[in-house]
Design a protein around this nucleic acid. Structure first.
Lengths: 204, 204, 204, 204
DNA sequence: AATGAATGAGAATTCATTCAT
DNA sequence: GATGAATGAATTCTCATTCAT
């Protein structure tokens, strides 16, 4: 709808993709507009037609990255068959998050690599979309505590921070073999799941 | 004994501390030798008497940071009274790690903020000390699985990655209230602990 | 008649006005086509429909500015009642010149702010219209030497340079109060007038 | 005394001289640090060892220029023989001012070429030294009104503005022949001098 | 052991200008 | 008549680094 496929729109996309990669590799402070422009097949000056300033581009990349991860998360959940068990839903969420970081482009990774070194103004602007993303995970875990896929004896918010923190920490792992990530996902799901005894009869 | 407190040795310490702060705030790519020198009350050129290049300083700061965290970890464990329960030992470890990130200087934080954007050569050099640090946590968790303070149904190595990942992810949280961190530690300990039912007889 | 009020003509006027302001504020070297375009409510590229190059626009603004000042000068003189004294005519000229710089738009000021830093080619092109303007003042002063409103014991050309120089120098004065300018005009007129004793009898 | 002839001091002088020329030719907005550096036989980056920013250099050049003109003015006056007539003293002042603009380096000219297009902050900083310079001329004229070398029937302050304005306006005149300037000086002195008839016999 | 003074490369940003639409 | 999109050169400024003192 707003996705009018104008030339500018397409160039902007190319820039954002190139920027995501640059930010993912070099972080906020180490990123170079020169390299971003080159990767987007533009001259540096041309970037400024699309983004007023470097921080403007950073802001756009952050929003883009979080939104991309959020969409991947909800899409992953929506793809779970209706008759799936709550456990399967939880695992789908974990898998989606990991996929956003490892199996897709660099948009989500860029966010993880930039957040801790952002200057205050950018951090503030970013926190809004970050919160929105956090709410999705909070929902997942809270519902899980109700439907029995998540242990109910811990604060959901804190649990969310642990889960998301652990997931994001995989971003710096070297070329993760799929197997490693799968095991990571499994283990995390196990930790989050209610302890066996607490699981109502039918579960075993 | 090697702690020869020469003038150079003291200056080197000042530089490393200033560098830790700079790296913690700006990351690898965004750090400036000029600012580091200023914070260490030196002129830029003088840095080169103590470190051959920026990457040399980065390497030293990384080693320093990991070593500092490792020492804080083992010190924290050693401080646990001999008659403490295994659970208490685990919590002490968690607390020590969080303290290294939040209650001490920036040496440990600097590491966390730099690792993901390190250039390959530095990353390689760093991986050794990182592994050494990882082994400490691996030990803790493995022993925990034996003494009953850590759930035995998960791979210790993967569990270690999750725990350390979650702990490190707190480094970007804004001025953490002590309470938040305490709750974070508690919850993490709960997740890692064996599920109540799974703990054989005497435990309940 | 040639004042065909086409759309292009109107836009051109808007550009020239915006340019005058920009040149008055920033001088030749500091002026930006982007700001001029913005002030004229156009995009930069659109300027090029009306002016082939920046220097072309500068040339037009210079001509426009001098012509505006010249017209204001002759208009000011023409407005003097036929029965006015020569002194009144002289004062009217001075007042007109000051008004062009302070009470009107920035067209005359733009000229004053640009002339000394013009590149040779533009300076050459400009000198023609400047000379034309200078001739008006020369006429005024020469006639004044004849009709007794200007002291006859000085070279008219040099006097012109002094008078015009002094008048133009007011352009950089901060928000001139009208009173200041009036006193400036009075004093200048006094200096230029023939010394009392030199005034022929009948004049009183 | 403070003129310690260090290497930095000498380089700074070279930069200021080069800057004066650049500013005199191109004005504030049109000046280029590249050209200044080249003229001072330095690389651009090296300028920053001596001046923190372009505006810092501009500020220094302005102060340097005004001070240079002021010193030339007082030196010119001091050089007048004690038995000289008041008229001769006045002419000496005029000549000194013109010399500062035409016969010396570009330091004074740079000021004249920059003042009207200075950004507010620089203008404010500059106004102080400008006022100090203005006071010298005010003194000259006031004393002149007492000793009979300056007509007493005009406000000294306004007269100062006219005189200085006229003098400064010569800065844009093309390669002034010495003769032109001499005549300019003579004529200006004539205008400023008391009208012959007005000087009553014994200076009553 | 540290400073002073410089360098060359690269940073982000703005410039005037072009040209297809 | 005007805009959208891009370019290449220039802008100021900061970087890590060197080396004589």
């Amino acid at each position: 709808m707003d996705d009018t496929d104008t030339k500018a729109e397409r160039t902007r996309r190319r820039i954002l993709d190139a920027a995501a990669h640059e930010f993912a590799v070099h972080g906020y402070g180490g990123a170079s507009l020169r390299r971003i422009a080159a990767a987007a097949e533009l001259k540096v000056g041309s970037l400024y037609f699309h983004f007023k300033t470097k921080d403007d581009l950073v802001g756009a990349a952050l929003a883009d990255g979080v939104e991309s991860a959020r969409l991947q998360l909800v899409a992953g959940l929506r793809a779970v068959p209706a008759d799936a068990t709550p456990q399967q839903r939880l695992r789908a969420a974990i898998r989606s998050h990991l996929d956003a970081l490892h199996a897709s482009d660099d948009r989500a990774t860029a966010v993880v690599r930039m957040v801790d070194t952002l200057p205050p103004n950018l951090r503030a602007a970013h926190s809004t979309s970050e919160r929105r993303f956090g709410r999705v995970w909070l929902d997942i875990l809270r519902k899980g505590q109700i439907d029995g896929s998540v242990r109910p004896d811990v604060n959901a918010r804190v649990l969310r921070d642990i889960v998301v923190g652990a997931l994001n920490s995989t971003s710096s792992a070297n070329p993760n073999t799929l197997k490693d990530l799968a095991q990571f996902a499994d283990t995390l799901a196990t930790l989050v799941a209610p302890p066996p005894a607490a699981i109502p009869s039918g579960r075993r």
